[in-house]
Amino acid sequence: MGNRFYVVKEQAVPEVLLKVVEAKKLLDSGRAHTVNEAADQVGISRSSFYKYKEDIFEFHEHSQGTTITLTFQMEDEPGLLSDVLKIIAQFGANILTIHQSIPINGVASLSLSIQVLPTTGDVSDMLEAMEAQKGVRNVKLLAKE
């Protein structure tokens, strides 16, 4: 098995992996000074930490300086696309392309290519904010370059 990557929602990730991410945050922030201390604080063994530490990371950590392509459906409502674009702007990402289908039964399909900059906020939070926008559904990450 090679280096294949998957993007999954947090709810699908086993708890031990989420705790490894939290332990890494504790170490990076200085709130824990040793692996043993970080593992104890999050409730995992040191062996679990070492087993998974290179294989799990938050999406945001490895998205800066890249281009991501998103797809989603959106109701055909005046100003809704503008609201979605404002969310992206609020997170400090740069929109490269917008492709929108003609609405069918009041719903349009869109794909956006977005440049993630070093100053961009957490991409996962941005996607969550987009999906929470009334009239927007099924926000999916298609590609990361």
Rank of each mutant, 00 (worst) to 15 (best):
K53L: 00
I68D: 03
E15H: 08
S101I: 08
G135C: 06
Q115A: 13
L141C: 04
L18F: 05
V35T: 09
A38W: 02
S45P: 07
T69N: 12
Y52H: 12
R4M: 12
V21W: 08
E58L: 09
D28S: 15
K144H: 03
S111P: 11
I56C: 06
G135H: 01
P103Y: 06
T67C: 08
K25W: 01
G121T: 03
L96I: 15
V35Y: 02
V42T: 09
A23I: 09
G43N: 11
L26M: 12
E128L: 10
K24Q: 14
K144V: 10
L17M: 14
K19D: 11
Q115P: 01
N105W: 03
L17G: 11
S48T: 09
I98D: 08
S82H: 14
V21I: 15
M1L: 14
S113Q: 14
I56Q: 11
A132L: 09
D55F: 04
Q115S: 10
A12E: 14
P78H: 08
G92S: 10
N94P: 07
M74C: 02
E145Q: 10
T97S: 14
I87K: 15
N36D: 01
G43K: 11
H99D: 11
S124E: 12
E77L: 09
V16I: 13
K86I: 09
S113N: 11
V84R: 02
D55W: 04
T71P: 02
G2L: 12
L80F: 05
L85N: 12
D40Q: 14
Q133P: 01
E128S: 13
L81G: 11
Q100S: 14
G65V: 07
S63F: 04
L27F: 10
H62K: 13
G43I: 04
V123S: 09
V116E: 05
L70F: 07
L80M: 08
L142P: 05
E77D: 05
S113F: 00
V84Y: 01
S111Y: 06
K24V: 03
G135I: 01
D76F: 01
L112K: 03
Q133N: 06
G79Q: 07
P78K: 11
K144C: 02
A108D: 12
S82L: 09
A39Q: 02
Q133L: 05
A143Q: 09
I56V: 15
S109C: 09
Q100Y: 04
Q11L: 01
A108W: 09
R46G: 04
V84Q: 02
V7C: 12
D55Q: 11
T66S: 14
H62Q: 07
I87Q: 11
L141Q: 08
M126I: 10
I88A: 06
G106N: 14
I98R: 12
E61M: 02
S63H: 04
Q90K: 15
P78F: 03
Q73F: 00
A89Q: 15
E128C: 05
G65H: 12
F49P: 05
Y52R: 09
E37Y: 07
Y50R: 04
Q64R: 14
V8N: 11
G2Q: 13
V116Y: 04
M1D: 13
F5S: 13
S124Q: 10
L141I: 07
H60Q: 03
V35Q: 14
H62R: 14
L96K: 15
E15W: 00
E75N: 06
Q73P: 03
T67A: 08
T34A: 03
M130P: 04
R137Q: 00
I114R: 07
